[in-house]
Protein backbone atom coordinates (compact mmCIF):
# COMPACT_ATOMS: atom_id res chain seq x y z
CA UNK A 1 0.00 0.00 0.00
CA UNK A 2 2.83 2.41 0.92
CA UNK A 3 4.68 1.59 -2.30
CA UNK A 4 1.51 2.03 -4.35
CA UNK A 5 0.70 5.41 -2.73
CA UNK A 6 4.33 6.54 -3.09
CA UNK A 7 4.22 5.66 -6.77
CA UNK A 8 1.01 7.66 -7.33
CA UNK A 9 2.47 10.66 -5.47
CA UNK A 10 5.61 10.42 -7.58
CA UNK A 11 3.57 10.32 -10.81
CA UNK A 12 1.45 13.24 -9.59
CA UNK A 13 4.61 15.27 -8.83
CA UNK A 14 6.03 14.49 -12.23
CA UNK A 15 2.90 15.49 -14.18
CA UNK A 16 2.37 18.53 -11.97
CA UNK A 17 5.93 19.72 -12.57
CA UNK A 18 5.63 19.40 -16.33
CA UNK A 19 2.40 21.41 -16.28
CA UNK A 20 3.38 24.14 -13.85
CA UNK A 21 7.20 24.21 -14.34
CA UNK A 22 7.51 25.38 -10.74
CA UNK A 23 10.98 23.89 -10.22
CA UNK A 24 12.13 23.04 -13.73
CA UNK A 25 12.38 26.61 -15.04
CA UNK A 26 14.18 27.83 -11.91
CA UNK A 27 16.60 24.91 -12.06
CA UNK A 28 17.44 25.26 -15.74
CA UNK A 29 17.86 29.04 -15.53
CA UNK A 30 20.18 28.61 -12.58
CA UNK A 31 22.28 26.03 -14.44
CA UNK A 32 22.62 28.26 -17.52
CA UNK A 33 23.48 31.33 -15.42
CA UNK A 34 26.05 29.67 -13.16
CA UNK A 35 27.75 27.82 -16.02
CA UNK A 36 28.00 31.05 -18.02
CA UNK A 37 29.49 32.90 -15.04
CA UNK A 38 31.98 30.07 -14.58
CA UNK A 39 32.98 30.23 -18.24
CA UNK A 40 33.42 34.02 -18.20
CA UNK A 41 35.36 34.00 -14.93
CA UNK A 42 37.74 31.29 -16.08
CA UNK A 43 38.42 33.05 -19.40
CA UNK A 44 41.87 32.13 -20.68
CA UNK A 45 43.18 31.12 -17.22
CA UNK A 46 43.92 27.53 -16.28
CA UNK A 47 42.45 26.83 -12.85
CA UNK A 48 43.51 23.69 -11.00
CA UNK A 49 41.44 20.49 -11.22
CA UNK A 50 40.67 20.92 -7.50
CA UNK A 51 39.06 24.32 -8.10
CA UNK A 52 37.14 23.02 -11.13
CA UNK A 53 35.86 20.04 -9.11
CA UNK A 54 34.72 22.46 -6.42
CA UNK A 55 32.92 24.79 -8.82
CA UNK A 56 31.14 21.83 -10.44
CA UNK A 57 29.61 20.94 -7.06
CA UNK A 58 28.84 24.59 -6.29
CA UNK A 59 26.74 24.69 -9.48
CA UNK A 60 24.99 21.41 -8.58
CA UNK A 61 24.42 22.46 -4.94
CA UNK A 62 22.90 25.87 -5.65
CA UNK A 63 20.84 24.57 -8.57
CA UNK A 64 19.41 21.90 -6.28
CA UNK A 65 18.69 24.52 -3.62
CA UNK A 66 16.77 26.67 -6.08
CA UNK A 67 14.44 23.89 -7.15
CA UNK A 68 14.16 21.02 -4.70
CA UNK A 69 12.32 22.94 -1.98
CA UNK A 70 9.38 23.41 -4.35
CA UNK A 71 8.00 19.91 -3.72
CA UNK A 72 6.64 20.84 -0.30
CA UNK A 73 6.51 24.64 -0.62
CA UNK A 74 4.12 24.34 -3.59
CA UNK A 75 1.81 22.03 -1.59
CA UNK A 76 1.67 24.56 1.28
CA UNK A 77 1.22 27.58 -0.99
CA UNK A 78 -1.56 25.99 -3.01
CA UNK A 79 -3.31 24.58 0.06
CA UNK A 80 -3.04 21.01 -1.18
CA UNK A 81 -0.97 19.70 1.74
CA UNK A 82 -4.14 19.16 3.79
CA UNK A 83 -5.62 17.18 0.89
CA UNK A 84 -2.55 14.98 0.78
CA UNK A 85 -2.47 14.56 4.57
CA UNK A 86 -6.01 13.17 4.50
CA UNK A 87 -5.35 10.86 1.59
CA UNK A 88 -2.40 8.84 2.76
CA UNK A 89 0.16 8.23 5.48
CA UNK A 90 3.25 10.40 5.89
CA UNK A 91 5.70 7.66 4.86
CA UNK A 92 4.10 7.40 1.41
CA UNK A 93 4.24 11.18 0.98
CA UNK A 94 7.90 11.31 1.99
CA UNK A 95 8.90 8.34 -0.17
CA UNK A 96 7.03 9.62 -3.25
CA UNK A 97 8.58 13.06 -2.97
CA UNK A 98 12.04 11.67 -2.23
CA UNK A 99 12.00 9.54 -5.38
CA UNK A 100 10.77 12.52 -7.42
CA UNK A 101 13.49 14.79 -5.96
CA UNK A 102 16.15 12.17 -6.58
CA UNK A 103 15.21 11.76 -10.24
CA UNK A 104 14.99 15.54 -10.69
CA UNK A 105 18.41 16.23 -9.16
CA UNK A 106 19.94 13.17 -10.84
CA UNK A 107 18.85 14.32 -14.32
CA UNK A 108 19.92 17.86 -13.48
CA UNK A 109 23.35 16.73 -12.24
CA UNK A 110 23.90 14.72 -15.42
CA UNK A 111 22.98 17.75 -17.56
CA UNK A 112 25.32 19.96 -15.53
CA UNK A 113 28.15 17.38 -15.66
CA UNK A 114 27.86 16.92 -19.43
CA UNK A 115 27.68 20.70 -20.00
CA UNK A 116 30.65 21.18 -17.69
CA UNK A 117 32.71 18.52 -19.51
CA UNK A 118 31.85 20.02 -22.90
CA UNK A 119 32.23 23.70 -22.06
CA UNK A 120 35.19 23.76 -19.68
CA UNK A 121 38.09 22.26 -21.59
CA UNK A 122 40.47 22.39 -18.63
CA UNK A 123 38.18 19.95 -16.79
CA UNK A 124 39.10 16.51 -18.11
CA UNK A 125 37.92 13.36 -16.34
CA UNK A 126 40.26 10.37 -16.53
CA UNK A 127 38.36 7.79 -14.45
CA UNK A 128 34.75 8.03 -15.63
CA UNK A 129 33.50 5.25 -13.31
CA UNK A 130 34.45 7.33 -10.25
CA UNK A 131 33.04 10.51 -11.79
CA UNK A 132 29.59 9.12 -12.68
CA UNK A 133 29.21 7.14 -9.47
CA UNK A 134 29.99 10.34 -7.53
CA UNK A 135 27.28 12.14 -9.50
CA UNK A 136 24.75 9.36 -8.73
CA UNK A 137 25.59 9.09 -5.01
CA UNK A 138 25.93 12.86 -4.63
CA UNK A 139 22.46 13.28 -6.15
CA UNK A 140 21.07 10.68 -3.73
CA UNK A 141 22.60 12.55 -0.79
CA UNK A 142 21.35 15.93 -2.01
CA UNK A 143 17.83 14.57 -2.57
CA UNK A 144 17.66 12.79 0.79
CA UNK A 145 18.71 15.88 2.77
CA UNK A 146 16.80 18.45 0.76
CA UNK A 147 13.50 16.52 0.85
CA UNK A 148 13.21 16.63 4.65
CA UNK A 149 14.55 20.21 4.76
CA UNK A 150 11.95 21.25 2.19
CA UNK A 151 9.21 19.76 4.39
CA UNK A 152 10.54 21.72 7.39
CA UNK A 153 10.89 25.07 5.66
CA UNK A 154 7.55 24.79 3.81
CA UNK A 155 5.82 26.01 6.97
CA UNK A 156 8.20 28.92 7.60
CA UNK A 157 7.60 32.50 6.51
CA UNK A 158 11.07 33.04 5.00
CA UNK A 159 11.16 29.92 2.84
CA UNK A 160 13.50 31.17 0.10
CA UNK A 161 16.40 32.17 2.33
CA UNK A 162 15.95 29.51 4.99
CA UNK A 163 16.47 26.55 2.67
CA UNK A 164 20.12 27.12 1.64
CA UNK A 165 20.96 28.38 5.17
CA UNK A 166 19.68 25.16 6.76
CA UNK A 167 20.98 22.95 3.98
CA UNK A 168 24.57 24.22 3.97
CA UNK A 169 25.78 22.79 7.35
CA UNK A 170 23.93 19.51 6.72
CA UNK A 171 25.25 19.11 3.20
CA UNK A 172 28.80 20.28 3.87
CA UNK A 173 30.23 16.78 4.57
CA UNK A 174 28.48 15.49 1.45
CA UNK A 175 29.83 18.30 -0.73
CA UNK A 176 33.40 17.94 0.55
CA UNK A 177 33.31 14.20 -0.14
CA UNK A 178 31.85 14.76 -3.61
CA UNK A 179 34.57 17.30 -4.41
CA UNK A 180 37.27 14.86 -3.22
CA UNK A 181 35.83 12.01 -5.27
CA UNK A 182 35.53 14.24 -8.36
CA UNK A 183 39.15 15.31 -7.91
CA UNK A 184 40.17 11.64 -7.78
CA UNK A 185 38.35 11.06 -11.06
CA UNK A 186 40.18 13.89 -12.82
CA UNK A 187 43.51 12.80 -11.31
CA UNK A 188 43.04 9.38 -12.90
CA UNK A 189 42.90 7.44 -9.62
CA UNK A 190 41.93 3.77 -9.58
CA UNK A 191 38.35 2.94 -8.63
CA UNK A 192 39.52 1.24 -5.42
CA UNK A 193 41.11 4.52 -4.27
CA UNK A 194 37.68 6.20 -4.17
CA UNK A 195 35.95 3.45 -2.15
CA UNK A 196 36.18 5.46 1.10
CA UNK A 197 34.45 8.43 -0.52
CA UNK A 198 31.69 6.18 -1.84
CA UNK A 199 31.23 4.63 1.60
CA UNK A 200 30.76 8.12 3.09
CA UNK A 201 28.29 9.10 0.36
CA UNK A 202 26.25 5.90 0.77
CA UNK A 203 26.26 6.25 4.58
CA UNK A 204 25.16 9.89 4.31
CA UNK A 205 22.17 8.99 2.15
CA UNK A 206 21.17 6.05 4.39
CA UNK A 207 21.42 8.14 7.59
CA UNK A 208 19.45 11.01 6.06
CA UNK A 209 16.67 8.78 4.71
CA UNK A 210 16.38 6.81 7.99
CA UNK A 211 16.31 9.96 10.14
CA UNK A 212 13.84 11.61 7.77
CA UNK A 213 11.48 8.63 7.91
CA UNK A 214 11.57 8.82 11.72
CA UNK A 215 10.86 12.54 12.00
CA UNK A 216 8.76 13.18 8.92
CA UNK A 217 5.46 12.38 10.58
CA UNK A 218 5.96 15.19 13.13
CA UNK A 219 7.09 17.65 10.46
CA UNK A 220 4.22 16.77 8.15
CA UNK A 221 1.45 16.76 10.71
CA UNK A 222 2.17 20.02 12.58
Amino acid sequence: MILQSSYHIFVKEFISEFRTRYALNALLMFVVTTLSINLFSIGHDSPTQEILSGTLWIVIFFSAMSGLSRTFVAEEERGTSLTLRLLTDSTSVYTGKLIYNFILIFVLSIIIAIAYLLLIKEFSVKTYSIFWLTIILGSAGLASASTILAAIIAKANTKGTLFPVLAFPILLPLLLTCINATKLSVDGAFFSEAIKEFQILISFAIVMVTTSLLVFDFVWKD
Partner: peptide, 18 residues
Protein backbone atom coordinates in the same frame (compact mmCIF):
# COMPACT_ATOMS: atom_id res chain seq x y z
CA UNK B 1 -8.08 6.96 10.70
CA UNK B 2 -8.17 8.77 7.37
CA UNK B 3 -10.11 6.33 5.17
CA UNK B 4 -13.09 6.91 7.47
CA UNK B 5 -13.11 10.68 7.01
CA UNK B 6 -14.30 12.96 4.24
CA UNK B 7 -13.40 16.62 4.77
CA UNK B 8 -14.56 19.75 2.97
CA UNK B 9 -12.73 22.83 4.16
CA UNK B 10 -11.56 26.21 2.83
CA UNK B 11 -8.04 25.09 3.81
CA UNK B 12 -8.21 22.02 1.59
CA UNK B 13 -7.68 22.58 -2.11
CA UNK B 14 -7.56 20.48 -5.22
CA UNK B 15 -4.63 20.46 -7.65
CA UNK B 16 -5.32 23.40 -9.97
CA UNK B 17 -3.13 22.13 -12.81
CA UNK B 18 -5.25 18.97 -13.04
Amino acid sequence: YYPHIGLVSPYLNMYEEF
